[in-house]
Write a protein that binds this DNA or RNA. Structure first.
Length: 825
RNA sequence: GCCUGAGUGGUGGAAUUGGUAGACACAAGGGACUUAAAAUCCCUUGGGGCAUGUCCCCGUGACGGUUCGAGUCCGUCCUCAGGCACCA
């Protein structure tokens, strides 16, 4: 054994050992309990960053711990390999996205391997590989057949700089999630996944995902946005048409005095046609549609509208209600039309005051009567109905149902449920993505590519245009193809799929990455699914996690997969911070993981990431902290070095006070680390416990240790256990020390140490004595001491007596093994 | 505005079921070793007090409450972070 800890040498040695022996390769083993552990796969951007390191170190601890606990652990890794940065880089370097991506994957794989992560690399997948996206295309066709995919013309979010359509989930505060530029609205044909069909189930199962953080579930619930209400039809005057609205306040129908339509609503233009308002409306609609989203409905945007020149009829009051086109009405939510009740909705109130429209109070607070003339804001609280015919005097909440039912019986609407969640538009006008397997026939329309012709391979021998525009529509040899149905010369779909599609099912494919008879091998799926523990950043709380849940349910209903939810347990890890801010190039506070590995070794980097904060919290990066982790490993090294000749020891029947103490420390630490890692994912406290143990062991004077059998044996047990406890966190140094300490056959197949509850018990207890809740003394009592004995010793303490002087004892509370509180007054 | 977290020493954090607040580490200060430095090791380290102790007082964002006992539970408020946001 070398006197000096040399991570560079030992890390290389053990990584090769694990790799050549294929120690992390797994297969189905029905004799063992399976454990599917997954970390979110990375986008191959070129180099790993500290966020990856943290994510994967956390996962590796869990994986190695579960292996040691006897589970059959599936721990795979792969690449989310399609996406825009590859295209941007290709344009910049006059290269090809595929080449750039593959180079990056090779580089990042090499970097990950230097961290010593316990992946089964035989299961590696890259989503840009035709063998992967073939099954995605196949699934697209199955979903199309099942009615879960459809094509529609829709107003979509469009990002000019990225030259692509964005899903609603990819728009953040009116701006593109990737480039941050304002998003505009544009009408376009595209393919949609019918995620709304699962809105209810996705929402309901939020209540059953006990292993998910509450805030992620809350975010998903809000995103789905279920609201109960009514749909109501308002007949348009002098027309056969009606306007349908959704409202959560059917109790206020009697107070509806006008109608607001979204500028996108087709009725705006059609109703105003031929009226004096035609040109005004046209101008207003044009302006609203070309305006960027932020300035139209963003914060502080002015509410504006124009009269469309026609009226509709309130089904309950018969009132003539002017129809307005209003910029704040969202076309995508509900029906794109809102019945306006100015007395009870602040937006309608503002609008009515601005344009001089009538206000009718229909809900009064319990203690007063509102007058439209004196109101300065809408009354949105609950109360009792007025001006509402037969419903007057009734409670507004109770009446919601009655009014909905009345409308239903009139054929003018009825109760309904509306969701904020909208279908997932997946068409992207990008090159570097999975082709949508559709052929557009001039005679038959869009026809799916037959299964035997899958995959539709993304052509790779192309020149990449500098404009950033997708080259696909210009590739005649690829685009032009006969219709699979009638043979007519047709065009392929040239849009590719949103890259979130690939990440919505990659965890399934890991169970059978090379299976070629279907998307999933039922046997593998049955054994491995679902993922027992998923680990990744909170930033995917809605997008990726909701899509994956949807895909899982769709796959289940297609009979491809068994489980109905993809991830049993979810751990969302915090960000890596430096100088108080997220690491980023623009801030210049980036730490390169590989430089750290060069300098300290992977074990130090791993240890720091795990020790400095619990996983779900942000981790503040400090150079001093890394030094501290490195120093600790050096201390452990020299501790083992000091005892390296303890190799052969006799088991001893004799016990000394010292050996007994060491064994107690050992078994207490085993218990603590096992619970912290296994049940709580608190790696920082587990490591702290190991540090405490090493501090205790360091205090043992080594002079007589080789002659004292009992001490010798206890020490060997302690050091062996300590190495085993360290091994999930810092596997390389643990393997090396294990070997140097005279133990055989690597650590990865070693069982996790067990603690003996008998050995943890103290002979003496330290009991805190309080007087009126304040600590006044500590007493040592025998383990067997009765409550009365404890009380007596407590009373005997001088300092306790001092505080009892002149008082009478009212009560004594004894907490077994911990504390006595003497209540005196 | 709504929802969800969080607020503890100079710093990161610990306190798992209401029971000794500050484990473990970092930083800082002092000491040992050394010709010297680095490395290493040892000691001190929440604030205050004096009578320097097995001492006392204060202290977990603020103010109340429940309790023998509150960092932990309840109420009101403040601050910060994240998510959603004209969602009818």
């Amino acid at each position: 054994m070398d006197t000096k800890y040399n991570p560079e040498v030992i890390e290389k040695k053990w990584q090769e050992y694990w790799e050549t022996k294929k120690l992390f390769k797994v297969e189905i083993d029905t004799s063992k309990q399976k454990y599917y552990l997954l970390e979110m796969f990375p986008y191959p951007s070129g180099r790993i960053h500290m966020g990856h390191v943290r994510n994967y170190c956390i996962g590796d601890v869990v994986a190695r711990f579960k292996m040691a606990k006897g589970f059959n652990v599936l721990h795979p890794m792969g690449w989310d390999a399609f996406g825009m940065p590859a295209e941007n880089a290709a344009i910049k370097n006059k290269s090809h996205p595929a080449k750039w991506t593959i180079n990056n994957i090779n580089e990042m794989r090499r970097q990950l391997k230097r961290l010593g992560l316990s992946y089964d690399w035989d299961r590696e997948i890259a989503t840009c590989h035709p063998d992967y996206y073939k099954w995605e295309q196949w699934l697209f066709v199955r979903m199309l057949e099942k009615g879960l995919v459809y094509r529609k013309k829709s107003v979509v979010n469009y990002c000019r700089p990225c030259a692509t359509v964005l899903a609603n989930e990819q728009v953040e505060a009116g701006c593109c999630w990737r480039c941050g530029q304002p998003v505009i609205q544009r009408e376009q044909d595209g393919w949609f996944f019918k995620i709304t069909q699962y809105a209810d189930e996705l929402l309901e199962w939020c209540d059953h995902l006990k292993g998910w953080p509450e805030r992620v579930l809350t975010m998903q619930r809000n995103w789905i946005g279920r609201s109960e209400g009514a749909r109501i039809f308002f007949k348009i005057e002098n027309s056969d048409e009606s306007i349908e609205v959704f409202t959560t306040r059917p109790d206020t129908v009697f107070g509806a005095t006008f109608m607001s339509l979204a500028p996108e609503h087709p009725l705006c233009l059609s109703i105003s046609k031929g009226t004096s308002q035609e040109s005004v409306v046209q101008e207003f609609v044009n302006r609203a549609l070309t305006q960027d989203w932020q300035s139209r409905v963003g914060e502080g945007a002015e509410k504006e509208g124009v009269f469309v020149g026609a009226y509709c009829v309130n089904p309950l009051t018969g009132r003539r209600m002017p129809i307005y086109c209003a910029n704040f009405v969202l076309f995508e939510y509900g029906t794109g039309a809102v019945m306006a009740v100015p007395a009870h909705d602040q937006r309608d109130f503002d609008f009515a005051r601005k344009y001089g429209l009538d206000v009718i109070v229909v809900v009064n607070p319990p203690d007063q009567s509102l007058e439209p003339e004196t109101m300065t804001e809408a009354y949105v609280e609950n109360g009792f109905l007025v001006n509402s015919g037969e419903f007057d005097g009734m409670d507004n909440i109770a009446v919601k149902k009655s009014i909905s039912e009345k409308l239903e019986s009139m054929g003018m609407g009825g109760p309904t449920i509306n969701y904020r969640l909208r279908d997932w538009g997946i068409s992207r006008q990008r090159y570097w993505g999975a082709p949508i397997p559709i052929i557009h026939c001039p005679k038959c329309g869009p026809i799916p590519v037959p299964d035997k012709d899958l995959p539709v391979v993304l052509p790779t021998n192309i020149d990449f245009p500098e404009s950033g525009r997708s080259p696909l529509p210009d590739l005649d040899w690829w685009v032009t193809t006969p219709c699979p149905k009638c043979g007519t010369s047709s065009r392929r779909e040239t849009d590719t799929m949103d890259t979130f599609v690939e990440s919505s099912w990659y965890f399934d494919r890991y169970t059978c990455p090379r299976y070629d008879k279907g998307l999933l091998d039922p046997e593998q799926d049955h054994y491995w699914s679902p993922v027992d523990q998923y680990i990744g950043g909170i930033e995917h709380a809605i997008l990726h996690l909701l899509y994956s849940r949807f895909f899982t349910k769709a796959l289940r209903d297609l009979g491809i997969k068994q489980a109905g939810e993809p991830f049993e347990n979810l751990l969302t890890q915090g960000m890596v911070i430096k100088d108080g801010a997220k690491m980023s190039k623009s801030k210049g506070n980036v730490v390169d993981p590989e430089e750290l590995i060069d300098r300290y070794g992977a074990d130090t980097v791993r240890l720091f990431c795990l020790f400095a904060a619990p996983p779900e919290r942000d981790l503040e990066w400090t150079a001093e902290g890394v030094d501290g982790a490195y120093r600790f490993l050096n201390r452990i090294w020299s501790l083992i070095f000091q005892y390296k000749n303890l190799k052969k020891v006799r088991n001893s029947n004799v016990e000394t006070i010292q050996s007994r103490y060491i064994r107690r420390v050992t078994h207490r630490t085993i218990k603590k680390v096992t619970e912290d890692v296994g049940a709580r994912f608190r790696f920082n406290t587990a490591i702290a416990a190991i540090m405490e143990m090493s501090n205790e062991l360091g205090k043992v004077t080594s002079e007589n240790i080789f002659s004292d059998d009992a001490l010798c044996w206890a020490m060997k047990e302690a050091l062996d256990s300590m190495i085993l406890l360290m091994s999930p966190f810092v596997p390389h140094i643990s393997e090396e020390l294990w070997e140097a300490f005279g133990n055989k056959s690597g650590l990865t197949k070693r069982e996790w140490p067990q603690y003996d509850p008998q050995l943890i018990i103290e002979e003496e207890l330290i009991i805190v004595v309080q007087v009126n809740g304040k600590k006044r003394a500590e007493i040592r009592v025998a383990l067997t001491a009765s409550d009365d004995e404890i009380k007596q010793s407590a009373m005997a303490e001088l300092n306790v007596q001092k505080f009892l002087e002149g008082r009478t004892i009212r009560k004594m509370v004894v907490v077994p093994g911990k504390l006595v509180n003497i209540v005196a007054g």
